[in-house]
Nucleic acid binder design. Structure first.
Lengths: 151, 151
DNA sequence: CTAGATCCTCCAGTGACTGGAGGATCAAGA
DNA sequence: TCTTGATCCTCCAGTCACTGGAGGATCTAG
């Protein structure tokens, strides 16, 4: 084989912060901010002090982005990441945490489904050019959709 | 009939801001903040300048709270409320808006369901005291769970 | 060897609340 | 009626999670 071909899998060349931002949809200052609050580990630097990233960073950052979009706060994400980083280790304490998050997730799904049904009804009404009253508010205002009752 | 009895339905006595806060789980400063940014209409005042509310306020505020918890931003809630306030009127323009929100809601449901399944798997693993690897990150990191592709 | 893109740090600004200071008002009991 | 504790008012400063600009270094393509 001639000179050009290297090993079968291309060695995973490190990403710049800009490339990471592009691949994840997270803005550069936000990436640095996540590092500063410890959601992302401190990125290794090049000789000229630039941060470098790899595929793991992409997955971790995408996870953070999705979780934030879904309304989880940073502290919850930090806990979720810690559980993922440390699979099954202090299972006893992580269990309660996971169950709490699970209940919260299920509550969100239920409320989103109620909202979805109502918005869908609105869209269908519009499609038929019918003027029918809108119950979006009632749907989300209804306390029955809450799984927890601490309010 | 004696003197005490009034009309069949008790006249809906107005709520104080504190009572509204209790019924909705929204803190008093937050209620005032929502009024200041126009999410809630300016509350009528008593002679001594205190805000008064009714059942409509309770429903509207509960809606806002749930929508915020579900991660919708204030601007989206403002639009949703405007549609609800003005049922079927400028149907043509509201339609696109509603469809956009619908797609967003469905995307959230899909991602939350994926997350739920994974967290559930973790919890079950814990319950059996099994040490199995955790894929929460992979689940939410997976770009396939996104319905939009602008990133 | 430049010129433009990209990176660095630091710091100030934004959106959506959250809470304290200082003062007025209300409602219930002595 | 008078007080006293709860609740309300406005204003303003602080927090969380970003977001963006200033000023300067480094990289990369022509």
């Amino acid at each position: 084989m001639p000179t050009m071909s290297s090993l079968p899998a291309t060695p995973p060349s490190p990403l710049t912060i800009g490339a990471l931002a592009k691949q994840t949809g997270v803005k550069i200052p936000t990436i640095r901010y996540y590092e500063s609050i410890g959601l992302l580990p401190e990125a290794p630097r090049t000789d000229s002090n630039r941060r470098t990233y790899d595929g793991g960073s992409v997955r971790r950052l995408r996870f953070i982005r999705h979780a934030r979009e879904l309304g989880f706060e940073v502290e919850a994400i930090r806990q979720l990441l810690a559980m993922a980083d440390d699979p099954g280790q202090p299972c006893r304490e992580a269990d309660l945490l996971a169950r709490t998050h699970l209940a919260e997730i299920e509550s969100r799904i239920a409320r989103l489904e109620a909202l979805r049904d109502e918005v869908r009804r609105m869209v269908e009404g519009c499609a038929q050019d019918q003027v029918r009253s809108c119950h979006v508010i009632e749907v989300l205002a209804d306390h029955a959709h809450c799984l927890h009752d601490r309010h």
